[in-house]
Design a binder for these strands. Structure first.
Lengths: 182, 182
DNA sequence: TCGCTGTGTTGTAAATAATGAACACTGTTG
DNA sequence: CAACAGTGTTCATTATTTACAACACAGCGA
């Protein structure tokens, strides 16, 4: 969805005219018009100024999702999960029919010897999980933990982290990440 | 945090020089320089073009949080979870030491005959969960489901929902809700 | 040392966006 | 109908941003 259509949709949702918004934002109505018609690409400062009249932040502006479809499916049977595995680790995603999920809820299985590798993620977000079977090694930052069945974790996704199973038995982990990066 | 500092921080995190990023993005190095020094306010299309060389979306760009989180507890042992039970249902919260959590990750146990009652939740958000033991009845809207071990669910929190265990054995559910309402 | 390659920082000219003042259109009101 | 207040659009001018090219500086190897 382009910037113009986005702005227009938001403006109309708020019940504002181009002139009204322009007045509140401290710009001219023609500016709003041009932006909405995509005949210009506004500068960050301009768009910020315009949005201040709503008011709305840049993040909100680009995040707003206008699709508000009613999610059809609620329950997913054990054999209905989407397999998004990469490598040895089995990852099954819950809620495949959900259009714009905000949680990535996974059922993960780490066979002996498996490893997610070192990830350096910068984006915002948090993740939590609980080990329901087996034993698993978790590294967050420069700390190494050994999770036993029933143990859990919670950390910021932007901290470098890694899961590894150096043990003899497979480990089963149920995890949740937000925002969903799948 | 301003746009210039933000771009510079991200660029350096990715280990790119101004020229390298400029080349990947299809702009000139001076553009990057000016933006980072805040001597200009780039247009949306320009910034988008620049970010495409990272690559990164506008949402991500404005969302990234550079605050170095104070190291908090990462791993929670099985006996360290916070019991937030109300009534017969046992609910244990993961990540008690986490200052401002965005996920409520719970280990829930429904004894035979237990029931969350009819909840009409107004708050926004989504929730997902997986049944790891027993059998549980889930009502969402006017639909009733019977979850077996390994089954899962995903729905919008604002839909009326209810969990109930009319069976003989306790049911264990692992769930995630966002945003966290605890 | 010199030359080279990388870095980021400037001028100046060309491209692009914002303003201010029109325009055309609609619905309302006397 | 005619005057009016509202809407969004368009155009010439002004202001801002971009590209291109040069510059200054730092590290490195012959």
């Amino acid at each position: 969805m382009d910037v113009g259509a986005r702005l227009q949709a938001i403006r109309k949702l708020k019940g504002l005219s181009q002139r009204e918004l322009a007045k509140r934002a401290g710009v001219t109505n023609s500016t709003i018009s041009m932006i909405e018609k995509n005949s210009v690409s506004p500068s960050i400062s301009s768009l910020k100024k315009v949005l201040s009249g709503i008011p709305m932040s840049l993040v909100e502006f680009f995040s707003i999702d206008f699709e508000q479809e009613t999610p059809v499916q609620v329950v997913y049977r054990a054999d209905e999960l989407v397999d998004i595995s990469s490598g040895a680790v089995t990852m099954k995603l819950i809620g495949k029919a959900h259009p714009s999920r905000s949680i990535a809820f996974l059922d993960e299985t780490y066979p002996p010897g498996s490893d997610t590798g070192d990830e350096m993620l910068n984006h915002d977000g948090e993740e939590a999980g609980m080990l329901v079977d087996g034993r698993l090694e978790l590294t967050v930052g420069n700390e190494v933990f050994v999770l036993e069945s029933g143990d859990s974790y919670y950390f910021e996704s932007n901290r470098p982290h890694r899961f590894r199973n150096p043990y003899e038995h497979p480990a089963r982990l149920i995890s949740a990440t937000t925002p969903a990066n799948f």
